[in-house]
C-alpha cells in the first residue's frame, strides 16, 4: 500500500480533530458566556467542525488507506 501526501494531510486533520476535542489551552478557565462556560462553546463549535471535515472526507477522500482495490481483486 503506498501513501501519498494527501493521505498524510487527512491523517493530520483527524489527529488535530482528536487532539483539540478537549480545549487544553482553556484548562482551568472558568469564563462564562451566555450562561455556559467558554470551553463548552468550544465543544459545540468543534463538533460542528468535525462534522464538516468528515463530510469533506466522504466527498473527496473516502476509500483511502483501506485496501479496497486489493480486497476486490483478492
Amino acid at each position: 500500500m503506498t501513501r501519498n501526501r494527501t493521505d498524510y494531510l487527512w491523517v493530520a486533520a483527524f489527529a488535530a480533530l482528536v487532539a483539540f476535542a478537549v480545549p487544553w489551552f482553556l484548562w482551568r478557565d472558568a469564563t462564562v458566556v451566555a450562561g455556559l462556560p467558554v470551553w463548552l462553546w468550544w465543544h459545540v463549535g468543534w463538533m460542528a467542525l468535525a462534522s464538516v471535515v468528515f463530510y469533506g472526507f466522504t466527498r473527496g477522500a473516502w476509500d483511502r488507506g483501506i485496501d479496497r482495490e486489493v480486497l476486490r481483486r483478492g
Binding site: V18, A21, H43, I66
Partner: peptide
C-alpha cells in the same frame, strides 16, 4: 468533552478504519 472526543470523534474515525473495512 470526554463524550465528544470519545463518541463524536475517535469513534467516528474508528467507524471508518474498522467499521467500513469490516463492511467491505
Amino acid at each position: 468533552l470526554v463524550m465528544g472526543a470519545m463518541d463524536g470523534i475517535v469513534f467516528a474515525v474508528l467507524w471508518y478504519v474498522i467499521g467500513y473495512k469490516q463492511w467491505l
